[in-house]
């Protein structure tokens, strides 16, 4: 009964199917079955946020979902969000602001930030910090990350509403 099972899902727009043991988490499946090592594991218990991916459109901890549970689901990782340009503005802002050091938390931070920005508008610093409440970063002290997300949100809002460009 603990034998491998077939799982079919869409990852970064590409249908994949594999045989997988039920105990394999989605995180390990992405990292080692599919080679998508942009998703990281820092605690394997949902406390650090390094493993966040989009599952059917919302961020979840891929360490807290078994791959077999994602059968039929749509999964997007940092690789997919990079390739389709969804997080290009965030990546640029993170780079310019140096909102990362070792980079291990960064994919999770980007997944969280992307979901926050999807809601539209320009979140306040407190709202950004609240959204990041489950994403641990040991290197930056967070401020640069907050700055970068705020900048990306402003840039996005500015692009959507040209009259708001006055902001420095």
């Amino acid at each position: 009964m603990t034998a491998t099972m077939s799982v079919a899902l869409t990852v970064n727009g590409i249908p994949v199917s594999r045989m997988v043991a039920p105990r394999v988490t989605l995180a390990d499946f992405l990292r080692f079955d599919l080679g998508l090592t942009g998703t990281h594991t820092g605690c394997e218990m949902g406390a650090c946020g390094a493993c966040l991916v989009r599952l059917d459109g919302v961020p979840v901890h891929s360490c807290l979902v078994f791959a077999v549970q994602a059968d039929g689901a749509v999964v997007e990782t940092v690789e997919g969000l990079s390739e389709n340009g969804a997080i290009a503005g965030l990546q640029q802002a993170f780079h310019e602001r140096n909102a990362l050091q070792c980079g291990f938390c960064t994919p999770g931070m980007l997944v969280t930030a992307h979901a926050l920005l999807e809601k539209g508008g320009v979140p306040s610093r407190d709202e950004i910090r609240d959204a990041l409440s489950g994403n641990y970063c040991r290197c930056t002290g967070y401020e640069a990350i907050v700055d970068a997300i705020a900048a990306a949100a402003r840039a996005r809002a500015g692009a959507e509403a040209p009259h708001a460009e006055a902001e420095a």
Binding site: M1, T2, P22, M45, G46, C63, L64
Partner: peptide
Amino acid sequence: GQSLVPALAMRLQAPACLVD
């Protein structure tokens, strides 16, 4: 699974079968 999966990962619980 947000409480159960960590318990499984730490082997604090180890059922033979998981019914989703």
